[in-house]
């Protein structure tokens, strides 16, 4: 078989005006859904869209495919974190976390030879994975995925203290609490706040810069939905290779494009031949 010779340099530009905006959007969605990427760049497998995208024939109606409703999730805008640790304190006081344990913490990453900044802070907590290794590892189903909200929760009375979940967790989100006589972990403040009608977790409401944004991934008006469903800035998750499908998303989050999205500015594309 011979390949046809195409001289790319001499090809005529067909222009973009012949493609309708709708077709353009459909094409983009198709490509992104098939690749399992939904946020510009080379990243990850965001939540569990990946598994179902092929069957849907083009990644439309993505919203309906989030496995939980409300699908609680957190987007961490890393550049906004200033390591004030108010979130850690709020978590401790809200959830009665003992001094020798923590449900969330802030990691420090240092750089040298960079022009803008030498240090970056990375808040970490339970990722409430859709495919949670701790839930699989627990011998007595003491830890489970909440069927409604997708929060990974603990039923303390069933915990035998074998600590397998602590090793199964790729995010170091679990510790053994002597007070509870069970392994303890972040539950997105379900017991102390969300189940009592509040909409924010202790850490996200304590955060002075908005680095931690908590919300419902199935609601298109929610800030979390908007931050994840944009192409302009890269969104990633921690340890994507473990294939846990986490629900904590990370982004730098200080670009103007993010402000535009939050201010509901529509995405504009340029058509060079029209200008």
């Amino acid at each position: 078989m011979k390949f046809p010779k195409i001289n790319f340099d001499n090809l005529k530009n067909e222009g973009t005006e012949s493609v309708t905006a709708q077709e353009r959007r459909k094409f983009l969605k198709l490509g992104l859904a098939v690749a399992g990427v939904y946020a510009g760049g080379k990243i990850l497998s965001l939540t569990s869209i990946v598994g179902t995208a092929h069957a849907s024939g083009g990644g439309v109606d993505l919203v309906k495919r989030y496995p939980y409703n409300p699908h609680y999730s957190m987007v961490i805008r890393q550049s906004l974190c200033i390591d004030c640790e108010k979130c850690v304190d709020a978590c401790k006081s809200t959830n009665h976390v003992p001094d020798d344990g923590y449900r969330t913490r802030i990691l420090t990453k240092k750089y040298s030879g960079t022009l803008d900044k030498q240090v970056e802070f990375i808040p970490v907590l339970c990722n409430h994975c859709n495919n949670a290794p701790c839930v699989r590892a627990c011998p007595t189903r003491a830890t489970y995925k909440d069927p409604v909200t997708g929060i990974v929760r603990m039923e303390s009375k069933k915990c035998i203290g074998c600590k397998t979940c602590m090793l199964a967790c790729p995010y170091d989100a679990r510790y053994f609490s002597v007070e509870r006589r069970a392994v303890d972990k972040c539950d997105f403040c379900w017991e102390e706040r969300l189940s009592k009608g509040e909409t924010q977790t202790g850490c996200s409401s304590a955060c002075p810069t908005g680095a931690r944004t908590f919300g419902n991934l199935t609601d298109p008006d929610n800030i979390v939905y908007k931050l994840v469903h944009q192409l302009e800035e890269q969104v990633w998750v921690l340890r994507p290779a473990d294939d846990t499908k986490p629900n904590i998303f990370y982004m730098k989050g200080n670009m103007r494009s993010v402000d535009n999205i939050l201010n509901e500015q529509k995405f504009k594309f340029s058509a060079p031949q029209k200008s």
Binding site: T140, R141, K158
Partner: peptide, 14 residues
């Protein structure tokens, strides 16, 4: 194991 007595119960019932 931190709670060996619970193990006997929940290994069977859960």
């Amino acid at each position: 194991i931190e709670n060996p007595f619970r193990m006997a119960i929940w290994n069977v019932f859960s």
